[in-house]
Design a protein around this nucleic acid. Structure first.
Length: 445
RNA sequence: GUGGCUGUAGUUCAGCUGGUUAGAAUGUCGGAUUGUGAUUCCGAAGGUCGGGGGUUCGAGUCCCCUCAGCCACCCCA
């Protein structure tokens, strides 16, 4: 019997026991609700795609991380490593039927064979929302509003949405004749908060081939500080003689005004010209979101505008804008801030199986309560009442409905508030209406 | 992918320079208490010391490989 297989999971892949899954499902539920409230519609794509769909982009980095293999029919296939590439394929294939603007959300797992760290796994969930087929700045603005609504709905009040516009940087690079090196410049700039201006300047000269003067010129953008209005004012002379840069400035101005008009507290939106985002397909607005209480955890919601989503798969141009909620980071943050309620049950109402012979009566009552919209768990064994209540207590049930022979005889139920320990006696009519009415107020919060 | 740290009951950890049947706390289960849940008391189960190989009279302890976790680089959610 020693040749039994050791139970284990692959590196970077995780099991989700109920105590992890319950807050996870709650977050996903919140995200869905917020996305829908802005009119985004659900969609999904297969986990597995033809390899050339995924490798099309050709970046070495994604190529290294891609899970790839041959399927049973000898096809080369790969697991999706993000939701953007499958969206591009989907749009190229179906946009005629969908019409534009196409607003979608997609919450699904993706896989990357990279090295693991806390909060970084090989299988993880992305919660993306995008608006495809419009270049309107209104869609950019709405993206910021969705991020704000998302974090509010999760229960955060202190967070900062940092916004930049790629065209500002692109304009500057045009002036400096560095456009060809934009990817290297972006990656260097992205490290600014981590390694500091000096090292970024060094990387700009070594990797991006900039002269020290050019590096300084690029870095001066990120040194602009002050209120949003002050930053915009300082930016104006820097982009004055470049069309691209001016467009970026105009869009940023429009965005700050619109977001304020939409009642987002002013301190939450911060123009930050050092926000770069390493991905080179962004062409307009870029956005990252930080929790003020835990800035070190990184951006919990990031995205931006891209000019041509499906260029690899279609002759048509499909501009779009969107962002992705970092579910795992957010869960890690909530855990660290001790904001995860210790709920280990799906139901709130606990029904002990007190008298074994009365099982069918309990089942009947549970059915009545469920019909009234209450979630009820009936204990499956007629163990001692103390044990059953202990089970309910440990799992975070809010109320227990206790009915023994005395109560059955008197047509009563004992309604116990498991949080306070108090009990009350409630008459048990044929439809349990009085009981239902008494349970409801106990399930607040 | 590169480099560093770590790995002992479900969980958090003890285990001195290698030395007989690997401990504690907590949790789990049972009982004291066959009608009331975080208290108390009693009892039980639970470990091939991550896995494999080697050195040794003897390895949880030393060496090698491997797997997993964490950290940095890289990249990013």
């Amino acid at each position: 019997m020693s040749d039994r297989i050791t139970p284990r999971t692959l590196k970077g892949f995780r099991d989700y026991p109920p105590e992890k899954m319950i807050p996870r499902e709650q977050l996903v539920e919140i995200a869905r609700r917020v996305y829908r409230s802005f009119g985004f519609r659900p969609m999904d794509t297969p986990a597995l795609e033809h390899l050339e769909i995924l490798t099309g982009k050709g970046s070495d980095e994604t190529d290294k991380q891609l899970y790839r293999f041959e399927d049973h029919g000898g096809r080369s296939v790969g697991l999706r490593f993000d939701l953007t590439v499958p969206l591009a394929r989907f749009v190229a294939q179906h946009i005629q039927d969908l019409g534009t603007p196409f607003k979608r959300y997609q919450i699904a797992n993706v896989w990357r064979g990279e090295n693991t760290q806390r909060g970084r796994y090989r299988e993880f969930m992305q919660c993306d929302f995008d608006t495809i087929g419009t270049t309107s700045t209104t869609a950019d603005i709405e993206t910021v509003l969705v991020i704000n609504a998302l974090l509010e709905a999760i229960g955060f009040e202190q967070f900062t949405i940092r916004v930049n516009n790629r065209q500002v940087l692109t304009g500057l690079l045009e002036k400096l004749d560095l456009v060809d090196q934009s990817t290297a410049v972006l990656r260097a700039l992205d490290k600014l908060p981590k390694i500091g201006a000096e090292k970024v300047a060094a990387e700009l000269t070594s990797t991006a081939g900039a002269t020290p003067q050019q590096a300084d010129a690029v870095l001066q953008l990120s040194e602009l500080t002050g209120s949003n209005a002050e930053i915009l004012a300082q930016l104006e002379p820097l982009v004055a003689d470049n069309e691209t840069g001016k467009r970026g400035l105009d869009q940023l101005t429009e965005l700050t005004e619109a977001v304020a008009a939409a009642q987002v507290p002013a301190e939450r939106l911060k123009l930050d010209l050092s926000i770069a985002r390493g991905l080179d397909y962004y062409t307009g607005m870029v956005v990252e979101t930080f929790l003020d209480e835990l800035p070190g955890i990184g951006s919990v919601c990031s995205g931006g505008r891209y000019d041509n989503l499906a260029e690899l798969y279609s002759k048509q141009r499909h501009p779009g804008v969107g962002a992705s909620l970092g579910l795992d980071r957010l869960l890690a943050a909530l855990e660290e801030l001790d904001r995860l309620a210790d709920i280990q049950t799906s139901a709130q109402v606990f029904l002990p199986l007190f008298i074994a012979k009365r099982r069918n009566d309990y089942l009947h009552l549970a059915t009545q309560l469920r019909a009234a919209g209450l979630d009820v768990e009936l204990y499956p064994e007629a163990k001692k009442l103390g044990k059953q209540l202990q089970y309910a207590d440990r799992r975070g049930f809010q109320v227990a409905v206790i009915i023994g022979e005395d109560e059955f005889a008197a047509n009563e139920a004992q309604l116990k508030n498991l949080t306070t320990g108090e009990s009350q006696t409630v008459a048990l009519d044929d439809e349990a209406l009085a009981l239902i009415a008494e349970i409801r107020p106990l399930l607040g919060s």
